[in-house]
Design a protein around this nucleic acid. Structure first.
Length: 871
DNA sequence: TTCCTCACG
DNA sequence: ACGTACGTGAGGAAA
């Protein structure tokens, strides 16, 4: 059995992968789709071929055209897309990490390298497989050299295989004649000119008959269409040049040791680290349990008895930094007891050598363990732990000031990531790769150790990036405020909620029936696909396609059709009821706890801008804009003896914008008047404040929103249903009126371009990798983000400060009243009746004084016996 | 899972 | 020429 070598055309396959896959990025903003696609193809090929040798060839110059001379002559050289260019060095590193031989050679194309290698290897009696997306390489095919062209079809990669015979079958020419064929017909993608006037068909006929351009030229007068005969004579020089360009050099000279191409285990530690970094989660499973021999693991200890545990805590007492974690028992417990969520023990790490996993046991009570942990934590300069909020039920924190939430710190340093697990932090900050299959105690020790070791590094990075104060003064105190809020929960009248749901069900059924009657058949109204077919095909309602998958049935589309088609308005109504029932009536009911309250989660490490997010359930999107939806707020009620006090900032984002831009005109305006949209209308449209029409105010409001979102004439025109030109005029008028805003927004974009991130008034950063994209759409998006993030982010900073202040004062002043919800610019407090005035005073002070801007921060405040009334 | 739709600021 | 407003989360359908 002869040996086999696989030769891969690196750039060609990367290119294929890049254009064949959607744009993927890892959480650091690094584009990864080409690398991912390349690896997918590589694995597939290796599985099929099981070769002894493997080599990947690259061109030396990244933006590659096979024939630079001609490319320059034609002036058609296009630079490689930035997103792809970035991935080339990464690809080479990944291959290196996998121990795969790569070659490149100045002055030689990858084609020439591959051609030469395939010829040599064949001579040595080997079987050769050449992997390329480029059909040019078909000329290399023989009985022992197979050209394999991968194609991505519907997400799956299929490979077309060509031996010499297959080339002949498919193209009716031999591999070497293939060169002549190309020389005649040319190849625009490869910048081979070919002979003008001779296309694919004619070229094929000529080569099939005459086998080479030289022979064809000799018989030029006999060539079939007279046009081809003339072309051949007239452009013979082009034909010769093209043939030269199309010919791959199989006798190139370059250094190469076959032994280096020997395929060893590609699933190395280094490769594993790369795959993790690139977040190729499903490719990671290919790796065997190859434990990295990290020395640190030697000092990981598992402790199961009281004596040793006591010794650990004694030693930990007084340590400068303590890293810890609390872990749960594996779910061997019957579901019946699942909600007990038993704690299995803790991890603790406090020096280079001290890392312990302490398990609960007969003489190691969990309560004692947690007590000890809390005690030593209070004594340390820094107590580091992941996701502190989730552990506050277990820990008795005596000193908030020394707490360091590693998750939150990692979030501040890169808010774009989707999770901040200890595995990620260990890899990113400590360069440690933790083995998936490690024993539990090892993982526990790793988590504690990572908290311990990474906290120092993260703290330094926070200092370097000017975010230390943001972290210690805002984010860390906020952890506790959010914990209190979750713990408090919000009371919901479940009977009233049920009643609300039942009423909705009645309406839904009636509407369903009417819709089926008008449609003439029953179908699933919730299915956009089925609905599209009914409306736009069966009922022939005009309003064509919009989405990739079919017709758009979004509300803004349907609203335009509603006046002419009763069924459409019924569908809109149905949708509204269905949404209210499924998401709110039924959805919320599932979260009401035994205490009659919903304890939703408020997440601190989700959003890119610094806002808080709310899940399980989302309490930040309870309906309010329509009366019907707003009614659901009546089921949110305070407990007996309490009332709701609701306070929300008035136009906080626009006020932030006025302050940050320093536009004197706008600042002056906002100092005077409360109705910001009206004053904008007055100044932009040059009419007295009192004479502003409703339409003018609406337009001004839309412009204000547009400014905050990162204005574009297209977006504004959509919103106002006007032409782009008119929208552009509004924007222009706005900038004329407030030139400071224009300057500020331009600066925001420029700053983000220069620094790579947008920044808030309090130093919070948001990376904007899209700004360096070669894609217009992406880049425009980046610009809008650069304009919006500082505004939205600063507003988020401010309300966080307010929340912390409100929560702190409610506690400090010994009040029973409590914070129950935050909705971005709004705080809801369940206030004990006799404390209402105090609470209102606290809210007003803490919210209005949260930041001192050049414009006043104003709030609207209401009280009520339910959320509907209090808003 | 991914897409579409829609609820909020 | 490109095809959008910024930031979220959830439910239902279809793949």
């Amino acid at each position: 059995m002869s040996q086999k070598i696989v030769l891969i055309d690196g750039h060609s396959i990367l290119n294929r992968a890049f254009y064949g896959l959607p744009d993927l990025t890892n959480s650091e903003g690094l584009h990864t789709n080409a690398v991912y696609g390349f690896l997918t193809i590589l694995f597939k090929i290796l599985e099929e071929e099981t070769p002894e040798y493997l080599t990947v060839a690259f061109d030396v110059h990244a933006p590659t055209f096979r024939h630079e001379m001609y490319a320059e002559y034609k002036g058609t050289r296009k630079p490689m897309a930035e997103e792809l260019r970035q991935q080339v060095p990464v690809m080479k590193e990944v291959l290196k990490a996998m121990g795969i031989k790569t070659i490149e050679c100045a002055g030689l194309e990858a084609d020439d390298l591959i051609g030469t290698l395939s010829a040599c290897c064949e001579k040595e009696g080997m079987e050769v497989s050449v992997i390329s997306g480029d059909r040019d390489l078909l000329q290399l095919a023989t009985d022992h050299v197979k050209i394999r062209i991968p194609k991505t079809r519907q997400g799956r990669t299929e490979v077309e295989d060509y031996y010499a015979a297959d080339v002949k079958e498919r193209y009716q020419v031999t591999p070497s004649e293939f060169i002549d064929l190309k020389a005649l017909m040319g190849d625009s993608s490869d910048n081979i000119p070919g002979v003008p006037g001779i296309g694919e068909k004619t070229a094929a006929k000529i080569i099939v008959k005459y086998h080479s351009i030289e022979n064809a030229h000799a018989h030029a007068d006999e060539l079939k269409p007279p046009r081809a005969a003339n072309a051949m004579k007239e452009h013979w020089d082009l034909a010769v040049m093209s043939k030269e360009l199309a010919t791959i050099n199989v006798n190139a000279e370059f250094p190469y040791e076959l032994a280096e191409a020997k395929l060893e285990n590609i699933y190395t530690e280094e490769a594993y680290a790369w795959f993790q970094k690139l977040q190729f989660k499903n490719l990671l499973s290919r790796f065997d349990v190859k434990a990295p021999s990290n020395k640190i693991e030697d000092s990981f200890h598992e402790i199961r008895n009281r004596k040793e545990a006591e010794a650990v805590f004694e030693k930990a007492d007084g340590a400068a930094c303590i890293g810890a974690c609390i872990f749960k028992n594996k779910e061997e417990v019957l579901p019946l007891f699942a909600d007990q969520a038993q704690i299995g023990g803790i991890g603790i790490s406090f020096s280079k050598e001290d890392h312990y996993c302490i398990r609960t046991g007969p003489d190691l009570q969990i309560s004692w363990l947690l007590e000890q942990l809390s005690r030593v934590a209070a004594g340390a300069e820094r107590f580091a732990i992941f996701d502190l909020k989730s552990q506050l039920d277990n820990l008795k924190i005596q000193k908030k000031e020394n707490c360091f939430d590693v998750t939150v710190a990692a979030y501040l340093l890169n808010p774009l990531k989707s999770n901040y697990d200890y595995e990620d932090v260990a890899r990113e900050q400590l360069g440690l790769v933790i083995e998936e299959k490690s024993e539990e105690y090892v993982k526990v020790c790793y988590e504690a150790y990572t908290a311990f070791a990474a906290s120092r590094i993260l703290l330094d990075k926070l200092k370097e990036t000017g975010m230390e104060e943001l972290f210690t003064k805002i984010e860390m105190p906020l952890v506790f405020a959010l914990y209190h809020m979750e713990k408090n929960g919000v009371r919901v009248n479940s009977d009233a909620l049920k009643e609300y749901g039942d009423q909705l069900a009645v309406h839904i059924q009636a509407l369903e029936k009417e819709i089926y009657e008008e449609a003439g058949e029953t179908f699933n109204i919730n299915s956009p696909k089925q609905l599209g077919v009914i409306l736009f095909e069966k009922m022939q309602i005009p309003g064509g396609k919009k989405t990739k998958t079919g017709y758009s049935t979004a509300a803004d589309v349907l609203e335009k059709l509603a006046p002419d088609h009763p069924i459409v308005s019924k569908i809109l109504e149905y949708r509204q009821y269905a949404k209210l029932k499924s998401t709110y009536a039924d959805g919320l009911a599932a979260y009401i706890g035994p205490d009659g309250r919903i304890h939703g989660k408020f997440n601190q490490t989700i959003t890119a801008t610094g806002r808080i997010s709310s899940t399980e359930p989302n309490l930040q999107n309870i309906p309010v804009r329509t009366e019907l939806g707003r009614m659901i707020r009546k089921v949110f009620v305070p407990e007996e003896g309490y009332v709701f006090v609701d306070a929300d900032y008035s136009q906080i984002e626009l006020r932030v914008l006025a302050h940050c831009s320093g536009d004197a005109h706008l600042i002056e305006a906002y100092r005077e008047a409360r109705d910001i949209h009206r004053i904008t209308a007055s100044q932009v449209f040059h009419v007295p404040f009192a004479d502003v029409t409703d339409q003018q105010r609406r337009n001004a409001k839309a412009v204000n929103f547009g400014i905050v979102y990162g204005i574009s004439s297209f977006g504004l025109s959509q919103d106002l249903s006007i032409t782009r030109k008119e929208a552009a005029k509004y924007i222009d008028d706005y900038f004329q009126t407030y030139p400071g805003i224009k300057t500020f927004l331009d600066h925001a974009v420029q700053h983000a371009k220069d620094q790579g991130y947008a920044v808030t008034l309090f130093g919070r950063r948001r990376p904007v990798p899209e700004l360096s994209s070669s894609n217009f759409m992406q880049r425009s998006f980046g610009e809008r983000v650069a304009m919006n993030s500082p505004i939205q982010g600063t507003a988020a900073d401010i309300i966080k400060i307010a929340m912390i202040g409100v929560d702190r004062r409610l506690k400090e002043e010994g009040l029973k009243s409590r914070l129950v919800l935050q909705v971005h610019d709004e705080l809801l407090i369940e206030a004990e009746q006799t404390e209402v005035e105090t609470v209102k005073e606290i809210l007003r002070q803490e919210m209005e004084q949260a930041a001192s801007l050049d414009v006043p921060l104003e709030i609207d405040m209401h009280t009520g016996d339910n959320w509907y009334e209090a808003k």
